[in-house]
Design a protein around this nucleic acid. Structure first.
Length: 195
DNA sequence: GCCTGGATCCAT
DNA sequence: TGGATCCAGGCC
């Protein structure tokens, strides 16, 4: 089942970051379908989160998409070379976002191999947000897309991750965020607990 | 306009 | 541990 827009408009971005584990993420790039299961996420709590691009209500060309109603993509360039894919959540005007940091590759293996130059296997864990977008073919051209469209979308295929199989920790690479750097907003599926 | 540094990755 | 690589955002 394709996740409906109402799913993304939940105001609890931390709940959603956890709930997205096990959901399927699918891209259709030039007619080529690649399918993966979300294995790692981080929540960014908008205006009140020093790690968020929208901290303090910062509204710029880049962050504008974060203020849209939940259910669109936010893709930006990091370190001059990596496209990072986020899911915008919450009601319009609330700039919540969830960074997708890892996936389990399920289908479209051949195209994923071509894009990464790696000998990827079905069921393989792809670690890191830059590697995730590279595997799926997501670039900044896919910024601001509705996640119910035909290019980039999510599905609930009934995979449920038990609480004891979810690892919670602080976020990566946000030391600049002061106290907020320690928030337990990173969620991962524990190794080998996905059939 | 210029300058700084970043929600990374990989080889060394 | 550092180099690649480039643009957003802050400050002048």
């Amino acid at each position: 089942m394709i996740l409906p827009l109402s799913y993304y408009q939940n105001e609890d971005v931390v709940f959603l970051a956890r709930d997205l584990l096990g959901k399927s993420l699918i891209t259709n790039i030039g007619g080529t379908i690649t399918r993966a299961v979300i294995a790692e996420t981080e929540a960014y709590a908008g205006e009140i989160d020093k790690a968020s691009h929208a901290y303090g209500g910062r509204r710029t060309n880049r962050t504008e998409v974060m203020f849209r109603a939940g259910g669109v993509s936010y893709v930006y360039l990091c370190y001059g070379m990596h496209n990072l894919f986020n899911i915008v959540t919450g009601p319009e005007g609330i700039p919540h976002a969830i960074l997708i940091r890892g996936i389990i590759l399920e289908d479209g293996i051949e195209s994923a191999r071509n894009r990464t130059g790696k000998n990827l296997q079905k069921g393989q864990l792809i670690e890191g947000p830059g590697n995730t977008t590279k595997t799926l073919g997501i670039t900044r051209e896919h910024n601001g897309l509705l996640l119910t469209g035909d290019t980039l979308w999510l599905e609930d295929n009934g995979i449920v991750i038990a609480p004891e199989n979810i690892v919670v920790s602080k976020r990566i690479g946000v030391d600049y965020a002061g106290d907020d750097a320690h928030l337990p907003y990173r969620f991962q599926i524990k190794n080998n607990t996905l059939k």
